[in-house]
Amino acid sequence: MPETRDITLTVNGETVTATVPVRLNLVDFLRNSLGLTGSHVGCEHGVCGACTLDVDGATTRGCLMLAVQADGCTITTVEGLPAHGMAGALRAAFTERNALQCGFCTPGMLASALEYIGAGGAADRTAIREHLSGNYCRCTGYQSIVDAVCDVIEGRARA
């Protein structure tokens, strides 16, 4: 029998209690146990960034954290991003700028971009690219993603 643990955490504002196998990744727990399939799974070794989500206010690879480690944590996935404010503006800018095509990278890209904007990052294309360097996008070529982030920082995008 695989070892299990009881965990209690806050996911997108709701308290969740569950019994999880200790070997279960956080992103698999969110997707398969809670049905929050917005966070994607690509490489499972931290390289592609598709599983990036917010744990206690910091972007985290959902594939490199165990669900059992998230006991007591506060998690925000793409499903839990508010429609208003910075997150809403960023999503509007992504649409406006065509910053997504297939959308596979988008949930992780939004999490990383929000961390950059929230920390007061400048509309400096090189700095934005460096911050987003851990998120692969196979469709857009990144230019439109950087455009969208700049739009939010420079106040051109509205939720």
Partner: peptide, 12 residues
Amino acid sequence: LPHIAHAAIRNR
């Protein structure tokens, strides 16, 4: 430090 991995990796 800025050269060590990516922001989400440096967070943990």
